[in-house]
Design a protein around this nucleic acid. Structure first.
Length: 271
DNA sequence: CTTTGCACCTGTTGGC
DNA sequence: TGCCAACAGGTGCAAA
C-alpha cells in the first residue's frame, strides 16, 4: 500500500494524537507479521510516554525513553486513530491504548508489515543502517545519483526503487517520476546523461512533494489516520493508465513488467 | 560488488 | 455461480 508520501501522510495524521501520550496498554491480537512482534515490546513501552515520532524511508520511528519502536506498513498496512473500545475488525492486529482515550490501531491484511523494537540508536539498526539517502534531503542530488548508478546495468526504474540507492520511491512514484523526467524506465541506470540524472533527481523530489501535499495516493484502500483517502491518484500521469492516451502527446501509455513490477510509461515522451 | 528470484500473506478481479 | 490464476502500494534474503 504505502510509499513514502503515504507513510509521511500517516505520520502527520497520527502525530497530534500520539505525541507526549503515555502508551497505557498494548493489545496484540496477531503477533505474526513479517517478523513476529517482539515479546518484550509491550514491556518496554507500557506506561511510557511517546517522546517523538519520525520517519526513515518507509519506517515510522516511535521514540521512547527506553528505545524505539519501528513500524513498517508493508503492502497493506494502515495506522489509524480510533476511540478506545472501537470493536476490532478482522485484520486489526494491534491496538496501542493512549492516555487520551484514543487508540493507535495497526491494521494489515497481508501482514507484510512489521512492528519491531530496538534499544540502540535507530539509525544503527540493521534494517536502517544500510539505507540510501532520503529523497527530499540535499544528500540526494544528481551527483550522488550518478555515482550510485555508476556500475548498474539494470533498468533505471529498478535502480531508483533500490533502497540502497534512494529510499521512499515505490512502484507508483518510480513510474511517475520517470515520466516527469522524460526518461524511459528501461534505460540502463549507468547510461543516463548528466542532464538526465539532474532531471530525474528533480522529478523524484517534485513528484514526492506533490504527492505528500495531496495526502498520498489512494488506489484501493489507503486511508489517512482520520479515514480520508489521499488525492494524488487524480494527478497520476501514467501509473495504471495502460492503453489510455498520454496527457502530453496522446500516444498510448504502455505497461511492461520490469523486475516483476508493473511499469507504465509513454513510449513517445520517454526516450 | 550487482543482480535475480523467491518468500512472506490475504483479498480482489477477470476469464472460463 | 464456482473455480483458478494472476495480480496488488514492499523488501529482506539467499544464491548466482
Amino acid at each position: 500500500m504505502p510509499e513514502m508520501p503515504e507513510v509521511e501522510t500517516t505520520k502527520r495524521g497520527v502525530e497530534p494524537y500520539v505525541i507526549n501520550q503515555p502508551f497505557n496498554q498494548v493489545i496484540i491480537r496477531q503477533q505474526q507479521l513479517r517478523w513476529p512482534i517482539p515479546k518484550d515490546l509491550a514491556k518496554n513501552i507500557t506506561r511510557k510516554k511517546l517522546l517523538g515520532l519520525s520517519r526513515r524511508a518507509k519506517y515510522l520511528l516511535f521514540h521512547f525513553s527506553t528505545g524505539t519502536m519501528l513500524i513498517h506498513l508493508g503492502m497493506s498496512g494502515h495506522l489509524h486513530i480510533v476511540k478506545q473500545n472501537t470493536p476490532a475488525q478482522k485484520h486489526d492486529h494491534v491496538d496501542f491504548l493512549l492516555g487520551n482515550n484514543y487508540s493507535l490501531r495497526y491494521t494489515d491484511p497481508r501482514r507484510f508489515g512489521a512492528i519491531l523494537w530496538t534499544d540502540i540508536p535507530a539509525d544503527e539498526h540493521p534494517l536502517l543502517c544500510k539505507l540510501g539517502p532520503e529523497p527530499l534531503s540535499t544528500n540526494f542530488n544528481s551527483r550522488y545519483l550518478a555515482t550510485a548508478c555508476n556500475k548498474r546495468r539494470q533498468p533505471i526504474k529498478q535502480a531508483i526503487m533500490d533502497n540502497h540507492v534512494v529510499v521512499g520511491v515505490g512502484n507508483i512514484y518510480a513510474s511517475e517520476s520517470l515520466f516527469h523526467a522524460k526518461i524511459n524506465p528501461n534505460r540502463a541506470a549507468a547510461e543516463l546523461t548528466t542532464a538526465e540524472y539532474q532531471a530525474l533527481t528533480k522529478s523524484i523530489k517534485h513528484i514526492l512533494k506533490k504527492a505528500i501535499k495531496a495526502g498520498g495516493t489512494t488506489l484501493k484502500d489507503f486511508l489517512h489516520a482520520d479515514g480520508k483517502p489521499g488525492y494524488f491518484r487524480h494527478q497520476l500521469q501514467v501509473y495504471g493508465r495502460a492503453e489510455a492516451d498520454c496527457y502530453d502527446c496522446n500516444s498510448k501509455i504502455l505497461s511492461q513488467r520490469i523486475s516483476q513490477r508493473n511499469t507504465f510509461y509513454c513510449p513517445t515522451c520517454q526516450i
